[in-house]
Design a protein around this nucleic acid. Structure first.
Length: 570
RNA sequence: GGCCCCGUAGCUCAGCUGGAUAGAGCAGCUGACUUCUAAUCAGCAGGUCGCAGGUUCGAAUCCUGCCGGGGUCACCA
């Protein structure tokens, strides 16, 4: 469509109706906000008016004349200050119906990604316990984003980095050791600084079965390393099973520990050093709020300010050991070396302070060639019957991912988590999630899909081949054409959502599509001649083709979100 | 104090990366079921897009400065 407009503009130039040297970069061709204005609108005349030294309306008039030569353009009207409103022949819209039916689940797939390799890292929760609701949003978001990018033509890798290198794993190991003693009927107490959760009880027992009494009354250096590995494996098994409840499967689990002792962190920092970005220095304390016990320390620093960060960041502590940042740089370096063209990290909002330095690191390592996008997911606020539901580890009101999924099911969990932009907080109300009403968008969309199937069954389940061959010219009612236009938006919407890394747009689109469908279906209740199945065989087939296409798109959209379409809801 | 995110209808939120009269859903009011699922639909009402400037043909959208809410801030990972 846009190329058609641009071609017409060039034609006007060769016809000397427009000056030759014009910049078309700002010309847009988009569906107008108000459909009454037409199907497509272009701002070409207003953008070019100044450059061309002509009145906008004159340019628009000339352009309109040119465009009308094309049979696909039904009308072209100049409006307002110089908008050119285009109305497409309805046949242009209607062809999306057979297209959608023939292409099926492939309808709307895009070549946008051009097979570029993109790595989406998400969840990456510390392997110290089961996933809780806070992790759920990032998990669902990352997974839907990965599916979306894949649908848009990217070669996607889903990745989870296991933070198994840090001191929190020591804490985990000690906690498991206490459970191990407990399994041997030794008296134990759980001081501050260990993980008291019940989920470690079976791990302690499993450890007993594996090593018997070997670690009893032994000092820490005998068992710590072994239990670290054992406990981490157990926790990852737990986390994988939690993810499986949501239908999430990772392609790669990357162990942070695997970077230690292999020279890879050193090599990565060496690469930065060669760019002159590593130095010994002393950081100034944060302004305004000096932390208690601040003292200046000489550390190894990364000059992240060269790549957009606010202050330089330490990669080594004053005692010479790595900060967390160092292996994380090395980890991202590893991703780059694995050949990814683009990287995405999905973090919780509490990691907001981390994005600049991570982007700086990737920018430095790749000379800005590999883009890193970091998506922050804001908090999830839990509600029960409208009452805020506070989560607290101490009070034991710690809501697990498992609890949520078991209560409301994976489909509802996923959809609800995606009905908000990632950077806006999300309210999750258990009562509402379970409610099967229009208040709950999941059911609204599912219901539309189920209704299509119901109608199809009533019509004797006509074959796709028959529907694809339907004479769609019978569809003339405004409500029918509105629905067709909504369907035609789908491919463009996929590209927009993918390029913005915003899967929530899919959810909102599906809601709109379902709304158009429900509206049309309802017309049949008011005006019997508008029912999908009528005495007119050709008309019925055309309408069935239309709603079949609706089902195709809903199915594809829900597929991206990871939600199962339901053929029946009773 | 620095940085990041948010501020749009009574409530919860969209707004297609600058377009025309800013949109949904809930809640409120009016209506629509002997029919392919009323788990639905049609309509009414509801707005200084936090405030003030700037950029231009044109701003909820971009820039600057404020105000308000949240997050975060060296040897934690």
């Amino acid at each position: 469509m846009k190329t058609l407009v641009l071609d017409s503009l060039s034609a006007l130039q060769t016809g000397a109706e427009l000056p030759a040297d014009l910049d078309f970069a700002n010309v847009t061709v988009e569906p107008p906000r108000d459909p009454l204005h037409g199907d497509m609108a272009t701002n070409a005349a207003m953008v070019l008016a100044r450059q061309a030294g002509m009145k906008p309306r004159d340019i628009a008039q000339a352009l309109a004349g040119k465009l009308l030569d094309d049979p696909r353009i039904a009308s072209a009207d100049v409006a307002g200050p110089g908008f050119l409103n285009l109305r497409l022949a309805s046949a242009v819209w209607l062809q999306t119906i057979p297209q959608a039916i023939k292409q099926g689940s492939a309808f709307g797939r895009s070549a946008l990604g051009a097979g570029r390799r993109i790595n989406v890292e998400y969840v990456s929760a510390n392997p110290t316990g089961p996933l809780h609701v806070g992790h759920t949003r990032g998990a669902v978001f990352g997974d839907a984003l990965a599916s979306l990018l894949s649908f848009a033509g990217y070669d996607v890798t889903r990745e989870y980095v296991i933070n198994d290198g840090g001191s929190q794993i020591d804490t985990l190991a000690r906690s498991v050791y206490l459970r191990y003693l407990e399994a041997h009927d030794r008296p134990v107490s759980f001081p501050d600084g260990v993980y008291p959760g019940d989920y470690l009880i079976p791990v302690g027992q499993a450890l007993k079965e594996r090593v018997g009494a070997a670690y009893l009354d032994q000092p820490e250096d005998v068992w710590l390393q072994d239990i670290r590995n054992f406990a981490t494996d157990e926790m990852m098994a737990l986390i994988r099973s939690d993810l499986a409840l949501l239908g999430i499967e990772m392609d790669v689990f990357f162990s942070e520990k695997s970077l230690y002792g292999t020279g890879r962190i050193e090599a990565c920092l060496e690469a930065l050093d060669q760019k002159g970005l590593i130095y010994q220095g002393v950081l100034t304390p944060p302004k305004g709020k000096e932390p208690e016990g601040w003292e200046p320390r000489e550390q190894t620093l990364f000059k992240s300010t060269e790549h957009g960060d606010d202050v330089d960041r330490p990669v080594k502590k004053s005692d010479g050991s790595w900060t967390y940042f160092a292996p994380d740089i090395a980890y991202h370096y590893d991703k780059v070396q694995r050949g990814f063209d683009e990287l995405i990290d999905v973090f919780g909002a509490d990691h907001g302070g981390y994005v600049k330095r991570m982007k700086a690191a990737v920018s430095a390592l790749t000379d800005g060639k590999v883009p890193l996008d970091i998506k922050l997911c804001q908090l999830v606020r839990l509600f029960k019957n409208g009452e805020p539901f506070k989560m607290s580890k101490r009070a034991g009101t710690f809501v697990l991912l498992r609890d949520v999924v078991e209560q409301v099911g994976p489909d509802v969990t996923r959809f609800v988590m995606l009905t908000r932009k990632n950077d806006a907080p999300l309210d999750f109300d258990f009562a509402k999630a379970l409610e099967q009403s229009r208040d709950n968008p999941v059911f609204y969309v599912q219901y539309a899909y189920a209704r299509v199937h119901s109608v199809m069954a009533k019509a004797g389940n006509p074959a796709d081949s028959e529907l694809a061959a339907a004479d769609t010219a019978h569809l003339q009612h405004p409500a029918e054409l509105a629905l067709v236009q909504k369907l035609a938006e789908w491919p463009r919407l996929v590209e927009l959502a993918a390029s913005h890394h915003e899967p929530h747009r899919i959810a909102f689109y599906l809601f709109d599509l379902a709304s158009e469908f429900h509206s049309l279906q309802h017309l049949g209740k008011v005006e019997p001649e508008m029912r999908f199945i009528t005495g007119d065989k050709a008309l019925s087939t055309a309408r069935l083709a239309l709603i079949r296409a609706v089902a195709v798109v809903i199915s594809a959209g829900l597929g991206i979100l990871g939600v199962t379409p339901m053929k029946e809801m009773r």
